[in-house]
Amino acid sequence: MADASPRRASSPKQASQSSLSEAASGWAGSHARCLLESLGRLHRRWVASLLTVLVIGIALALPTGLYILVKNMDHLATNWHESVQISVYLNTDLSADQGASLAQRLRDDADIDNTHFISAEQGLAEFKKASGFGDALDALGHNPLPGVIQVTPRAAMPPAAVGELVDRLADTDHVAKAQLDQAWLRRLSAILDLISRASWVIGLLLSAAVVFIVGNTIRLDIENRRQEIEVMKLLGAPDAFIRRPFLYSGLWYGLLGAVVALVVLGGCYIALGGPLATLVSSYNGALALEGLGLSGIGLVVLIGILLGWVGCAITVNRQLAAIEPG
């Protein structure tokens, strides 16, 4: 409508082609320029920018750290779960030979990986050695301990199936009791579930915090540039043009915040490195620490960028609409 340029009207076809490619290269160029310019703006007020970025970084690091913790603990719990053994206590009237043959028979069960028979005598000897109650036990006159078969369930068995196996073993002839000391493992699993859920809740809350932090920073930024924005509107800048550098700032805040979060987590890893190494080596290679991995790092960066952008987007429209030259 307003654009009735006589220069272009002189040769319409050629002009429209050149103006199209001109517009395309201009568009890409102006975006690239804008991206760098907004980084330059952050740099110019680097103290304020740094504070914002640090706060975002810490806010992102906390839920991410919890996530890594839960992932490793889960791993650990699975390891422990696999080392679970069922203690099958035999009737005291069963001889050592009978016990050994029962242990042999149980080994045929598909759900059982291995069995190890400990006769009453072996048990007593071990207990004397371990407990130091040797004299008291001698005074007792007879062996109060039953024979025990240590049953190792097949690998990676779900807890429910292990429970069924325990019941089945308890019902077997000559068996007094089958016991799986799993209560602490269930508790650990419940605690891990809780931490995992908590990390999501904390993650959501802190994500909201990041959105508000970026929103507030951008709001102040816009307020500081009020005169510039008015001038741009007077020169015919559309809202999209004025909005763009601020959106890119939000993007930078999110990206740099994510980088800070990763550095913070790296620092935590180094700080905890000594005790962690000791813990890991005590598992003789059964336990390997898991970090974020490349995809995890990518995700943190992506989430950071997204949160920064969202925080900016929800602020910038309202703020810019409030600024009109007059």
């Binding site: 409508m1 307003a2 654009d3 510039e228 509107k233 007077l234 015919g236 559309p238």
Partner: peptide
Amino acid sequence: RQVPRYRQRVGLIFQNYNLL
């Protein structure tokens, strides 16, 4: 929404220059 495009073809000059 068409105001920006309209303003692009009117040259405004101000008493306080309005430079950045």
